[in-house]
Simulated scan of single mutants.
Amino acid sequence: MAESTSVDEFIVGQSAATKELRRLVDILAPADSTVLIQGQTGSGKDVVARAIHALSGRKGPLISINCAAIPTELLESELFGHEKGAFTGAETDRKGRFELADEGTLFLDEIGDMNLSLQTKLLRAIENRTIQRVGGSKDIEVNFRLICATHQNLQAHVDEGKFRADLFFRINVFPVQVPSLAERSVDIPDLIDTICASISESQNSKPPLFDETALSELSRYNWPGNVRELRNVLERAIVLFPQKEITSKEVRENLLRLKVPDENEELEALWEETGNLNSIDLDGLISDKPPLPVPSSYQDWFSYFDTIDLRKHLQEVEIVLIEAALRKKEGQITGAAEALKLRRTTLIEKMKKLMIERPNAN
């Protein structure tokens, strides 16, 4: 008898956001409804898709395709297949990803990059559960479950005419939001254990040991590349520090900023560390919510990055806070201005300058 599959095998962590994601996957996986997974690049949307398929009970395979990675002129053939002679080089009939996903799941990653003409053909396939190969006229029935993913705002694309509204409503049956790694930083120790074990097994190598200062340093980092970036950092750690202890110093100097460690430097650092055995306070690490940023949070910025677009960054912070205040006050500008400690006229001027729309007041 085959072992049962658990969502915990795919989605690791104990943060509130991760627990909610696991609960949602458990609920929607057995259904055949279309799922739209949204989240930042590298946040693990493909992992969520694999979890949904594994728990779905569908007999066929999970067939994946990245719509952004394949040129537009080739994507149609990749999805729908082609008949012999359909175009130069089509020497035989070829099944596309839809047919390969029969009785299984088709995962369309980065669907926001699909052009409008192909969106039309995709909509027909979803509605009729039939496809036609490129160069063919025969309808081929396909039993598939569709999962789509994107890091883009598809609703904004619809408003701009870049994405079909009817297709958006078709694929947005079960929307799933994958949290960024910064939103689930409490999961980082669990993710490190899981990812290091996976990499070490595949490479037949021994993982390093991250001490408490290293875990704290990794939890403070903002992870613009999310879990994908964390995996890259851990691959570096396994190569540079096999079976060695890693402290916050190695994290800053050798992992987040790639620099091959010098053996003499390592020995000197080890000698210095033995003289400082103060315990590390991890209260900030064991938290269910990411800490609110304070000005001092930026003092280590140039330990990780070489530059910052200060004007753009501050403007983005302003937009986020103003929109949040307006939502909190149900669109009331006076209330939002008080929450932000601004004059009403100042807030109105900022809204015009930053092109922030006032939400409908209840």
Score class of each variant (00 low, 15 high):
89 G>M: 04
61 P>G: 05
24 L>I: 10
105 T>C: 13
74 L>C: 09
129 R>E: 13
139 D>G: 02
35 V>A: 13
21 L>W: 10
129 R>Q: 15
82 H>G: 03
86 A>K: 03
16 A>F: 04
36 L>S: 10
36 L>K: 03
111 I>Q: 10
20 E>R: 15
120 T>W: 00
53 H>A: 09
76 E>L: 07
99 E>R: 08
111 I>R: 10
8 D>W: 01
101 A>H: 05
109 D>Y: 13
9 E>S: 13
48 V>P: 00
81 G>C: 08
120 T>C: 05
124 R>E: 03
17 A>H: 06
70 I>T: 12
46 D>E: 15
47 V>Y: 05
115 N>C: 14
130 T>K: 14
17 A>P: 00
67 C>L: 13
62 L>H: 09
116 L>A: 14
9 E>A: 12
92 T>V: 09
89 G>Y: 03
94 R>I: 02
86 A>F: 04
133 R>S: 02
24 L>A: 10
60 G>K: 07
135 G>P: 06
69 A>Q: 12
112 G>P: 01
68 A>E: 03
91 E>V: 14
78 E>S: 12
66 N>D: 14
28 L>S: 10
23 R>G: 07
50 R>C: 04
131 I>T: 07
8 D>P: 00
27 I>L: 14
57 G>D: 06
42 G>E: 05
86 A>M: 08
36 L>R: 03
31 A>F: 14
87 F>Y: 15
71 P>K: 12
107 F>K: 02
55 L>Q: 07
64 S>M: 10
72 T>A: 15
51 A>F: 02
50 R>I: 02
140 I>T: 08
110 E>S: 15
73 E>H: 14
64 S>V: 12
37 I>S: 00
129 R>A: 07
84 K>T: 06
120 T>E: 05
